[in-house]
């Protein structure tokens, strides 16, 4: 009886192995079939690439150029502090503890901000107010307003300019306020809140979204980063307004938008 049982178990095992083998063969056949289809698709793709090869290479180069420009200006470098509001814009943290801003977010937000501002920009009017208390933000703001015809505030913002109609500096038809740093431009941020004016702001990793209606995640401390942010914004707005047909037609360069102030530690080093 025991021998019979053993024999029956062996035969069952052999049948199972045979079934497994047959299933493996089927799978391999299926896989081969898939491979054939993939090969066909690859061939189709290569044919398409040969037709559109030149255009695709140009696009890749443009993307790489843009990426290199972003990285060289340091627009992605944040601070060592991270607020809860800025968490969604973060890419990673470096070994030194600095938080890195996601560049794709910066690029998309710049385009979205340009889309919003292009609806309000009107040359010669004070509809769009651009303010910067930061030293490195003054030159980019001036150039931005020169290019698009907005109102620049680079000196002290007089309290009541948006809320008190009895003072001389009162701005009657303010529609949007653009600020560089929510911490530094606190006065204009509070006034815009009282005057019911939407606020667009550059947003670093240590800022909060209180009172801001559209944030552009970017480094708002470096002079190159500020210059690049405003240069891209001005270029995008002028394209959307129809002032220029392509990006190459923009009359200002990135150097025009960057601040010429030399940092204090550089001056001290040059004296030695």
């Amino acid at each position: 009886m025991a021998r019979k049982k053993k024999k029956s178990e062996e035969t069952q095992n052999i049948e199972d192995i045979q079934e497994e083998k047959s299933s493996l063969v089927d799978f391999e056949e299926d896989f081969e079939d898939d491979l054939d289809i993939e090969e066909e698709l690859e061939l189709l793709d290569t044919e398409d690439l040969s037709v559109l090869g030149e255009d695709k290479a140009v696009v890749v180069d443009k993307d790489e150029e843009k990426k290199n420009l972003f990285l060289s200006c340091g627009i992605h470098i944040g601070t060592k502090l991270l607020t809860g509001d800025a968490r969604k814009f973060i890419y990673r943290q470096t070994n030194y503890g600095l938080y890195v801003i996601d560049l794709t977010e910066t690029e998309t937000r710049l385009k979205i901000a340009a889309n919003l501002l292009s609806k309000f920009v009107d040359e010669g009017s004070d509809k769009v107010i651009v303010s910067s208390v930061r030293r490195y933000g003054k030159e980019p703001v001036k150039k931005f307003c020169e290019a698009l015809g907005c109102k620049a505030i680079t000196t002290r913002f007089i309290p009541g300019s948006l809320t008190n109609p009895n003072i001389e500096t009162y701005i009657r038809d303010a529609s949007v306020v653009v600020i560089v740093d929510p911490h530094a431009d606190k006065v204009i941020l509070n006034e815009a809140q009282l005057a019911r004016v939407p606020v667009v702001s550059l947003f670093d990793t240590d800022d909060s979204l209180k009172g801001i209606d559209l944030a552009i995640p970017a480094n708002n401390r470096g002079k190159k980063a500020l210059g690049l942010a405003f240069w891209l914004l001005a270029k995008e707005i002028s394209i959307q307004l129809g002032k220029i047909s392509s990006e190459n037609d923009f009359p200002y360069t990135l150097e025009d938008f960057t601040s010429k102030i030399v940092p204090l530690y550089n001056k001290q080093q040059s004296r030695r």
Binding site: I112, A113, N115, V176, R196
Partner: peptide, 8 residues
């Protein structure tokens, strides 16, 4: 003092 603006 609420605000309104078109979708960006």
């Amino acid at each position: 003092p609420a605000i309104h603006f078109p979708c960006p």
